[in-house]
Computed example of a mutant assay.
Amino acid sequence: MVSPIPHLPLFFSMFFAIYSIAHFIIFRTWTPKLRPEAASCLISLAHGTPAVLLACQSIISDANHGFASTNTDFQNSVLEYSIAYFLMDLCHYLIFNPSDVLFIGHHLATLFVFLTCRYLVFHGAYGILILLILAEVTSFFQNVWTLASVLKAESKVAAQVFDVMSPPFYALYSVVRGLLGPLFVYKMVAFYLSGAADNVIPRWVWISWICVVVAAISVSILWISNRWIELYRERIAVIDKKQKIR
């Protein structure tokens, strides 16, 4: 059941190299405070969109995919690709942002799901990879938005990019994380509750997966709700300022 080629060390080395190049070469002129954040965004960019494309291809190429189907070698490789990224980014947070308990907890929980699917039960990658697609389809926009956010105080261009990107990015994120994600999780829960996967995926495993996913979606909804509120307040403040000038 184990993939004949150990991809995880190779993928981790790749993300480590990208992070190091970003930190010490690409963003070397940035301030020590911003450089690690930018390096983290770069490895996230290297993971997000490729992971979506790879996950889609691995699902399409498996004619027998389902919530309880056996993981294919291709699907296991995609899981390893994501495991390597989250391990590298976890190292980043532990070194540069050890107080960010929310992100560290998120990465640990995500790693638990991927690792148990890949190395413990060898089944269920279909559902996990669909969730990965939903989680990472907004990755490119989120990373560009994040970089613009951290630079907006120092760069007018970054501030303009942030202002222009925020509404459409928030809208896309809201649809994916607030609508499509919960709908898919509902289908996933209904399948597992039927007992159809009990002979290949122990109940404690899929229950823990669901708990992690529901918690992640809840935090995502809370995060995007706060962003909408913040955007609304900023726009109201701008309108009030213009009215006072008149």
Rank of each mutant, 00 (worst) to 15 (best):
Val2Phe: 13
Ser3Arg: 03
Ser3Ala: 07
Pro4Phe: 03
Pro6Lys: 03
Pro6Trp: 01
Leu10Tyr: 14
Met14Ala: 02
Phe16His: 03
Ala17Gln: 11
Ala17Val: 07
Ile18His: 02
Ile18Val: 15
Tyr19Ala: 00
Ile21Pro: 09
Ile21Asn: 01
Ala22Arg: 00
Trp30His: 13
Leu34Asp: 12
Ala38Gln: 05
Ser40Ile: 01
Cys41Asp: 06
Cys41Lys: 00
Leu42Cys: 04
Leu42Trp: 04
Thr49Gln: 08
Ala51Val: 01
Leu53Gly: 07
Ala55Glu: 05
Ala55Met: 03
Cys56Leu: 09
Gln57Asp: 08
Gln57Lys: 14
Ser58Leu: 05
Asp62Arg: 11
Ala63Met: 15
Ala68Phe: 14
Asn71Val: 01
Asn71Asp: 00
Thr72Trp: 14
Asn76Gln: 12
Ser77Cys: 08
Ser77Ile: 02
Ile83Ser: 11
Ala84Lys: 09
Ala84His: 08
Tyr85Gly: 00
Leu90Arg: 02
His92Trp: 10
Leu94His: 08
Phe96Met: 07
Pro98Ser: 09
Pro98Thr: 06
Val101Arg: 07
Phe103Thr: 12
Phe103Met: 15
Gly105Thr: 13
His107Val: 02
Leu108Lys: 01
Leu111Val: 12
Cys117Val: 09
Val121Pro: 05
Ala125Phe: 06
Ala125Gln: 08
Tyr126Lys: 06
Leu131Phe: 08
Leu132Cys: 08
Leu132Trp: 00
Ile133Glu: 03
Ile133Cys: 13
Ile133Thr: 10
Val137Glu: 01
Thr138Val: 05
Ser139Phe: 02
Ser139Cys: 08
Phe140Asn: 05
Gln142Cys: 14
Gln142Ile: 11
Thr146Ser: 01
Ala148Met: 00
Ala148Tyr: 00
Ser149Lys: 15
Val150Trp: 09
Lys152Phe: 06
Ser155Val: 12
Ser155Ile: 12
Lys156His: 12
Val157Asn: 06
Gln160Val: 02
Val164Ile: 10
Ser166Ala: 12
Pro167Phe: 10
Tyr170Val: 15
Tyr170His: 14
Ser174Ile: 02
Ser174Met: 09
Val176Ala: 10
Val176Glu: 00
Gly178Ile: 09
Leu179Cys: 11
Leu180Ile: 14
Gly181Ile: 08
Pro182Leu: 05
Val185Ser: 02
Lys187His: 11
Val189Thr: 09
Ala190Thr: 04
Ala190Asn: 04
Phe191Val: 04
Tyr192Arg: 02
Tyr192Trp: 04
Gly195Pro: 05
Ala196Ile: 07
Asp198Lys: 10
Asp198Gly: 06
Ile201Pro: 12
Pro202Ala: 11
Trp204Glu: 14
Trp206Ala: 04
Ile207Phe: 13
Ser208Met: 12
Trp209Gly: 01
Ile210Trp: 07
Val212His: 15
Val213Asp: 00
Ile217Met: 09
Ser218Asn: 02
Ser218Tyr: 06
Ile221Leu: 05
Ile224Ser: 14
Ser225Lys: 02
Ser225Ile: 00
Ser225Met: 03
Asn226Asp: 06
Arg227Ala: 10
Arg227Trp: 05
Ile229Cys: 12
Ile229Leu: 15
Leu231Lys: 00
Tyr232Ala: 08
Tyr232Trp: 13
Arg233Ser: 12
Arg235Ile: 07
Ile236Asp: 01
Ala237Ile: 04
Ile239Asn: 11
Ile245His: 09
